[in-house]
Amino acid sequence: MAIAPSDIAKLAHLARIAVPESEVDQVTQRISDVLDLVDQLQAADTEGVQPMAHPLDATQRLRADQVTETNQRDEFQAIAPATEDGLYLVPRVIE
């Protein structure tokens, strides 16, 4: 896909990126290279290929689901401005 230097100026303006005039040709070439790579990837035949969640067939080690901290709710609620039945009370913001 061909991209023009005027397109780079327009994209730079929309993205709020300063691209100096001296670098417009270089940026144009780099973006064209990226778009060519995307075209190559789109040309690959993926018929019958199952999508993967991760490129490596790895499983994540899981830790045991155990409580490791003591219950300090009463201490935390003792310093709260307002609580009721174990819940924090906040000012109403929606009528």
Results as ranks from 00 to 15, higher is better:
residue 38 V to P: 12
residue 33 D to I: 09
residue 49 V to M: 14
residue 82 A to C: 00
residue 33 D to P: 04
residue 73 R to S: 03
residue 79 I to Y: 05
residue 31 I to N: 12
residue 72 Q to R: 11
residue 78 A to M: 04
residue 31 I to K: 07
residue 34 V to M: 11
residue 42 Q to M: 13
residue 60 Q to K: 13
residue 92 R to W: 00
residue 90 V to L: 08
residue 57 D to W: 01
residue 50 Q to F: 02
residue 70 T to R: 03
residue 20 P to Q: 04
residue 72 Q to I: 00
residue 75 E to C: 00
residue 82 A to V: 00
residue 75 E to Y: 01
residue 20 P to M: 05
residue 35 L to C: 08
residue 12 A to Y: 01
residue 44 A to E: 12
residue 40 Q to A: 03
residue 92 R to H: 00
residue 40 Q to K: 11
residue 43 A to T: 09
residue 34 V to F: 09
residue 91 P to T: 10
residue 92 R to N: 01
residue 13 H to C: 00
residue 38 V to R: 15
residue 61 R to E: 11
residue 11 L to F: 06
residue 92 R to V: 06
residue 50 Q to L: 12
residue 65 D to K: 08
residue 74 D to W: 01
residue 36 D to L: 06
residue 36 D to A: 13
residue 48 G to T: 02
residue 50 Q to A: 15
residue 61 R to D: 09
residue 52 M to R: 14
residue 77 Q to D: 05
residue 7 D to R: 13
residue 77 Q to S: 02
residue 22 S to P: 11
residue 50 Q to W: 05
residue 39 D to E: 15
residue 77 Q to W: 01
residue 51 P to E: 06
residue 54 H to I: 00
residue 65 D to A: 08
residue 23 E to I: 04
residue 82 A to K: 15
residue 90 V to E: 09
residue 77 Q to T: 06
residue 62 L to K: 15
residue 48 G to M: 01
residue 73 R to C: 01
residue 32 S to V: 12
residue 94 I to Q: 00
residue 55 P to L: 01
residue 16 R to V: 15
residue 1 M to S: 14
residue 73 R to M: 06
residue 17 I to D: 07
residue 40 Q to E: 09
residue 21 E to L: 06
residue 41 L to D: 12
residue 43 A to H: 08
residue 55 P to C: 05
residue 86 G to Y: 04
residue 80 A to R: 10
residue 51 P to S: 07
residue 53 A to Y: 10
residue 68 T to W: 02
residue 68 T to I: 11
residue 54 H to E: 04
residue 85 D to N: 09
residue 35 L to R: 10
residue 19 V to E: 05
residue 88 Y to M: 11
residue 5 P to R: 07
residue 88 Y to K: 12
residue 87 L to R: 10
residue 86 G to F: 03
residue 23 E to S: 13
residue 71 N to R: 04
residue 26 Q to C: 13
residue 93 V to A: 05
residue 49 V to S: 09
residue 66 Q to L: 12
residue 1 M to Y: 08
residue 79 I to A: 12
residue 46 T to V: 12
